[in-house]
C-alpha cells in the first residue's frame, strides 16, 4: 500500500522515542503507530474531555488524529517539532472539525488537510509552565470565565483566534475583543 521505504528502519519497541516511532510510521510500520497510539491516546483523551463533554465526539477526534498521523507522518519528519505538541495541535483541530462538521462525516469525503502550524512553545505557554509558582495563577483565577476560556484556547491549546471562536461558539470579532480585554485585565492584575 505504501512505498515510501527508502532505507531499513530499526525495529521499534516500547523504549523508542516519539521521533523514532514517527519515522517508522512514515515508513509504513503499523506496529509503530500502535505504540504511539497507546502512549498518547490516554492523555489526549483526558485533555480533550475537558473541551467537550460528549465522549463519542472525543473518541472520534482521537481516532481521526491517529489516522491523520498515519497519512501525514512525513510532515512531522520534515518539521521535527515536539511530538506531543504536534499531536495535540492535530487532535484539538480534529475535535473542532468534528464539533462543527456535518452530522454524517463518515459518509462524506476524506478529512481536510493537516494544518501547517509551528509547534514551538509560545511565550505564553512557557509562562504557563510556571503558573504553579508566582502571581499568574491567582490572576488567572480572578479572570472572568469567558475571558479565561479564550486565554486557554489561544495560549494553551495553540489555536488561532478564529479557531478559538469556533470552539467556543462565538463570533470571531467577539473573540478578538475578549482576548484583548483578557490581556489588559491580566496586565492590571499582575501589576
Amino acid at each position: 500500500m505504501r512505498r515510501r521505504r527508502q532505507r531499513p528502519i530499526p525495529p521499534v519497541s516500547e523504549q523508542s522515542s516519539d521521533a523514532e516511532l514517527l519515522h517508522a510510521i512514515a515508513a509504513g510500520e503499523t506496529s509503530a503507530l500502535r505504540l504511539l497510539h497507546h502512549r498518547h491516546a490516554g492523555w489526549l483523551r483526558a485533555r480533550l474531555r475537558r473541551r467537550c463533554a460528549d465522549p463519542d465526539v472525543v473518541d472520534a477526534a482521537i481516532q481521526d488524529t491517529f489516522v491523520a498521523v498515519w497519512k501525514d507522518s512525513d510532515r512531522y519528519v520534515e518539521t521535527s517539532a515536539d511530538a506531543a505538541a504536534w499531536l495535540w495541535t492535530i487532535a484539538v483541530r480534529r475535535l473542532l472539525s468534528t464539533l462543527r462538521g456535518p452530522a454524517h462525516r463518515w459518509l462524506s469525503g476524506p478529512a481536510d488537510e493537516l494544518p501547517d502550524v509551528a509547534t514551538t512553545p509560545s511565550a505564553e505557554e512557557l509562562v504557563l509552565l510556571g503558573v504553579e509558582h508566582g502571581a499568574l495563577g491567582p490572576a488567572l483565577d480572578r479572570l472572568s470565565p469567558e475571558l479565561r476560556r479564550l486565554i486557554e484556547a489561544t495560549a494553551l491549546d495553540g489555536l488561532s483566534v478564529r479557531e478559538a471562536a469556533k470552539l467556543l461558539g462565538i463570533a470571531e470579532g467577539t473573540a478578538k475583543t475578549r482576548l484583548m480585554r483578557a490581556r489588559t485585565r491580566l496586565r492590571e492584575l499582575l501589576t
Binding site: 475537558r50 505557554e125 504557563l128 509552565l129 495563577g137 483565577d141 479565561r148 486557554e152
Partner: peptide, 9 residues
C-alpha cells in the same frame, strides 16, 4: 482554573 492550565501546560 489556573491549576488546570498549569497541569495541561
Amino acid at each position: 482554573p489556573s491549576r488546570i492550565m498549569a497541569v495541561e501546560a
